[in-house]
């Protein structure tokens, strides 16, 4: 049963990826004739036709799409105009920096957000009121502004950490903290509301009747039952982190794919933009596939479906 579920999930992911490829292809197609960007305005009509034939632009649309898809499957997203390198190698070179940033922010979000939600749900009263206040603020503050304020406070006024750039742990702290705030707010809210429900369940009363320590009841019995929505959301959360990372990377001059995309935007380097967007979509689909697989491991009920 479990195999078929996973297979269905994979097919589903494949269908989504085809959609992603159609969307990126269609948008890139709307950029107009790339030949006008590639050749000088004085080039003759014959040269233009030759160039179009060389790029496959004289083919019907569906053939062009299939060509694009065929290249994409082989990891070929064409050449960047500005860097004169293959798009795939450029994106892959920047990917570790983005993953490091998003991964660190994610780790912070999990290690702060989950305990925060548990404490708020079990202590009640002032704890949940404080969390509510904090998470409302966390959701409203734009991450790039928070980044600027942290730079102002920590780097410009207190001179504790470097302002921007890429290197050791000191460079990572501010961007990762900045990026994690919204995730902490969302995760802690989710955990708090889930825990409130779980603490009223019958198995908690049973655990209490058995005389288990309250500590163990909360952190083992109740929390485990809240984990499934948390993991499902964690997959989506990583996608959100990758998306917000674009702006945070610009604030801190972090050399990830977000900054690559913004550079490409400035130079109107469409193949580079297209490749970046497509590969980001691919990453998101794979992450969520992994989240589904983890859910099936945590919750035996999900293996039956």
């Amino acid at each position: 049963m479990r195999q078929t579920l996973l297979l269905r999930r994979c097919l589903h992911a494949l269908a989504v990826l085809i959609g992603v490829s159609i969307a990126t292809f269609a948008v890139a197609h709307a950029t107009g004739d790339p030949v006008t960007l590639l050749l000088s305005p004085s080039a003759s009509e014959a040269t233009r036709m030759q160039m179009r034939a060389h790029l496959g632009l004289d083919q019907p649309l569906i053939t062009q799409y299939l060509l694009f898809l065929g290249h994409a499957v082989q990891g070929d997203f064409g050449q960047s105009f500005i860097y004169r390198q293959s798009v795939a190698s450029l994106v892959l070179a920047r990917l570790p920096a983005t993953l490091l940033l998003a991964g660190s922010a994610f780790a912070i979000a999990l290690s702060v957000g989950v305990p925060l939600g548990v404490v708020a749900a079990t202590r009640g009263g002032w704890a949940s009121a404080t969390l509510n206040l904090f998470s409302m603020a966390g959701l409203a503050i734009p991450s790039f502004w928070l980044g600027l304020m942290l730079v102002l406070l920590v780097a410009v006024w207190l001179r504790l950490l470097p302002v921007d750039g890429y290197g050791g742990l000191a460079h990572l702290i501010l961007p990762a903290l900045t990026l994690s705030l919204q995730s902490i707010a969302r995760l802690s809210r989710l955990v708090a509301s889930g825990m409130q429900g779980a603490m009223r369940a019958d198995y908690i009363r049973t655990a209490r009747a058995k005389g288990l320590l309250e500590h163990r009841i909360v952190w083992v019995h109740a929390l485990r039952n809240v984990l499934v929505p948390v993991v499902t959301m964690a997959g989506l959360e990583l996608g959100d982190l990758l998306s917000s990372a674009v702006v945070v990377e610009v604030v801190f001059a972090w050399p990830g794919i977000g900054r690559l995309a913004v550079t490409a935007l400035g130079e109107r380097d469409f193949p580079l933009l297209q490749g970046t967007v497509f590969m980001a979509g691919l990453g998101f689909v794979l992450i969520n596939l992994a989240a589904d697989a983890i859910c099936a491991r945590i919750d035996p009920r999900m293996r039956q479906v």
Partner: peptide, 19 residues
């Protein structure tokens, strides 16, 4: 699901760069 698969800021940059 296709819409959700795009990290939105990147996708928005791409669209606005084109259009």
């Amino acid at each position: 699901n296709v819409q959700l698969a795009f990290p939105f800021t990147l996708f928005a940059i791409f669209l606005l760069a084109v259009f």
